[in-house]
Amino acid sequence: MKKILITEDSPTMRSLLASTIGSVDDYEIVEASSGFEALRLLPREKVDLIITDINMPDINGLELISYVRNNPNYQHIPLFIVSTESSEKDLEKGLALGANEYLVKPFDPTRLLELVSKYLG
């Protein structure tokens, strides 16, 4: 069973992501409604994949990516950005910070599942 952390402040979007990925039996979902919650969950849950939005209150997605990539405990974890394409610059920065993939909302559920299985096998 692989564990996937979804960080997204919109409840509807979060449950949509969770139900898309959760439809596959092999994946367990952990949900965070803010960057802070993700920071708190990371040491508690052994996460195999992180999915994050960029525009969020408290800390934003880029700051979360930077934290993950600069922390020896988590830097190996694959990380996807799922965000609305409003700022190309932000997306580029996310990739530069070490995000593995990015999907633009509205995302294609099939494509998301393909990517998840590509990284988690």
């Binding site: 960057g35 802070f36 920071l39 708190r40 040491p43 408290d58 800390i59 700051e63 979360l64 930077s66 934290y67 600069n70 922390n71 020896p72 405990n73």
Partner: peptide, 30 residues
């Protein structure tokens, strides 16, 4: 941390603008 940081940013906002907040691993990591 969320509460402590919240208090700190609240205090800071009384004297200016909090532009960004970047987390990093603490000394003890976990």
């Amino acid at each position: 941390f969320d509460q402590d940081l919240g208090e700190l940013t609240d205090t800071l906002k009384q004297g200016g603008e909090v532009i960004s907040t970047l987390p990093s691993a603490g000394g003890g990591l976990d």
